[in-house]
Design a protein around this nucleic acid. Structure first.
Lengths: 226, 226
DNA sequence: ACCTGAACACCGTTCAAGT
DNA sequence: ACCTGAACACCGTTCAAGT
């Protein structure tokens, strides 16, 4: 009566044809091949060669699936060597976090929840750890270090969002977004800037704004202890 | 043969039963009553009492509709009186922008496109104008003023996103998000902070981070001219 | 225990046809 | 010119039934 393929966990019944690892791998394949907008439960099931409803035996919901995929992605990112100077270390860690997010902008939607730390695996939390540790090494209290991380994350998430949406809208119709049409008497500064805005906006101002933010935050925490 | 209800614009044919103004009003009604997630083309049409396909004679797409609704909303916000000191003026304008966005977090998705300025009516651009003008009054070049605005917008949009997603996820299942489960040997600082993180995260740290960002940005532009 | 198809309750958008 | 229902091409999720 005993199943000839009884699992080592002592479970009985039909052995699984689908595994969480297989699901995550297929999801990454779809994201990389077709873009993350195409990752739907139905497509993912088709990719694996299984009924759509089967997936609900392995993940609770689509969001659950996305968290799974995100953690797998974050686990593949190597932890960078960081400078010893606390201020420079915060900036380097933030840039690493930004680069990781820029490659996977959809992840930002999952991760922009205040409780998101509870969703992430330990292997993905070193970005947070490094920033908090550097802030404390500079002389921040734990509460100040949290504010430092949060503020950097807000700034980074916003930049990623703009970056992703801009790329998406450029894929569709080009928008002129010309400011020269503006009424100079009501919006004089914007009218004067005119098309210069588009030129400046093409550049990457993330690092510059980041340095400003970090310097401002550390100044609030008091002068360096060194 | 002439229509008895020929419009003053000299157009002929069946007079419209549906107007853009009516559509925008109905959309706002749905958003305020049921939440913005419930605003669908079909629901909107039902609210007006018209076929869903009819709306496509008045708006090009759903995105077009959202831009229409957003501009109407922004047009109703009063332009605040701002301090004369440039630094304080930037902060006050940013806080006004933040408050407007916090009330309508869905709008952030529309407006986080680099070319979004081209989508907004003049009546909505005073927030941008005021920040740019204040930055220039402080002594920034136009290019620096653009970086100031962009950086503030990134930070603000990110905060709104986290705020909106946190509210949404709290409406669903409560997440514990406990950091005390962490391995202290691999993530010592986070483990030490533990549940203190949740306490600090409950507070509103937007103004504090904003001040840090603005001070950092203005320091980059050089010392005050006054 | 694992997997299935059918079904539910939706989406945004197009298009030929009606008035 | 304006409005319509039907249809297209999808979604995420549930559930009773099969193996």
């Amino acid at each position: 009566m005993a199943s000839p393929t009884a699992s080592p966990h002592g479970r009985t019944g039909r052995p699984p044809l689908t595994s969480r690892a297989q699901i995550v791998a297929a999801a990454r394949e779809i994201i990389e091949r077709d873009g993350w907008e195409r990752l739907t439960v139905r497509r993912l099931a088709a990719e694996i060669g299984v009924g759509a409803t089967t997936l609900y035996h392995h993940v609770r919901s689509k969001e659950d699936l996305l968290v799974l995929v995100l953690n797998h992605y974050l686990g593949t990112i190597e932890r960078p060597r960081l400078p010893s100077d606390p201020r420079d270390r915060i900036i380097a860690a933030a840039v690493a976090m930004h680069d990781a997010a820029a490659a996977w902008p959809w992840a930002v939607e999952i991760v922009t929840t205040d409780g998101f730390l509870g969703l992430l695996d330990e292997s993905a939390l070193w970005m947070v750890e490094d920033i908090v540790a550097a802030a404390e090494d500079y002389g921040c209290t734990p509460a100040q270090a949290i504010v430092v991380f949060r503020s950097i994350w807000y700034y980074t998430a916003g930049e990623i969002l703009v970056r992703a949406n801009t790329a998406r809208s450029r894929a569709g119709d080009l928008r002129p977004a010309s400011l020269s049409r503006l009424d100079a008497s009501r919006l004089p500064r914007l009218a004067a800037i005119g098309d210069h805005w588009a030129t400046v906006s093409q550049g990457d101002t993330y690092p510059q704004g980041l340095r400003a933010l970090v310097d401002g935050l550390l100044a609030q925490a008091g002068p360096a202890v060194s």
